[in-house]
Design a protein around this nucleic acid. Structure first.
Lengths: 130, 130
DNA sequence: CTAAGTGCAAAGTTTTTGCATAACT
DNA sequence: AGTTATGCAAAAACTTTGCACTTAG
């Protein structure tokens, strides 16, 4: 398993830069448009590839919205956390929930499940939007 | 908002019957195939429409897998619960987590969020599959 | 009878992929 | 120079929709 070299292309830098600025979860299409707005021309397929690569490298978080779209966001914390997302403006708060992690692992263990993983997202309307 | 009457068609009955038997989360395509296997001919679009209708009526649960597919399952409990799903065989255990619900609501309230909802799924490899 | 439900195929979305070209190292 | 990355367009995969036909009530 030799590690792949990663080339620093203009496109990769541009995608990373946009992700560093965006503070809400965004779809590939939205990132693509943000790039256009900045005058950076990057093919949509390349945006997909770079977002995927960034997610694989754990540099950005990845989740699916209710419509099945994959959304990406660069989070402040590197440790495991969950998101509280405003369903109107998309504002996102990163929250820790150690008790929940423990609960999930315990429940799984109680039923004989191994290699446990979990997903937890909280949504609501934030104060500014209600 | 007058309520729509619901007609009991052969197709609707067939879809409901299949869902009553399947005990794992299944995609529209899988339900469609299960119908074929039973000798019930139902158009795929109709399967989609009926699954959607059943979910809207809260008669079946609906979630998205990691691939973005929508999966459906008729659950035993009517009350709010979560799922512990085997990623190999799909076996599903319904689990309650009142403490988690309270935690989620509290976290959201702490940040001024209203109309809070959350999604939580646990996945792992069950004892039979590991 | 009349509106809801169905089937089929076409269209829509999001995401992936093949392949020739461009460009890091 | 040698490969990895890109761009474009085509393909995939899942889901929705338009419309004529069927059928429950």
């Amino acid at each position: 398993m030799t590690e792949q070299p990663v080339r620093t292309t203009r496109q990769r830098r541009a995608v990373a830069a946009v992700m560093a600025d965006l503070d809400t979860f965004s779809s590939a299409r939205e990132v693509h448009e943000a790039l256009r707005d900045r005058g950076e021309s990057v093919g949509l397929a390349t945006v997909y590839r770079n977002l995927q690569a960034l997610a694989d490298a754990d540099e950005i978080d990845q989740l699916r919205n209710d419509d099945g779209e994959v959304l990406y966001r660069r989070c402040a914390t590197e440790q495991h956390h969950h998101h509280l997302v405003c369903r109107v403006c998309g504002r996102t708060v990163e929250v820790l929930g150690p008790a929940v992690e423990r609960w999930a692992d315990q429940v799984a263990a109680d039923h004989g499940f191994r290699d446990v993983a979990h997903t937890l997202e909280i949504s609501g309307t934030c104060d500014r939007c209600s």
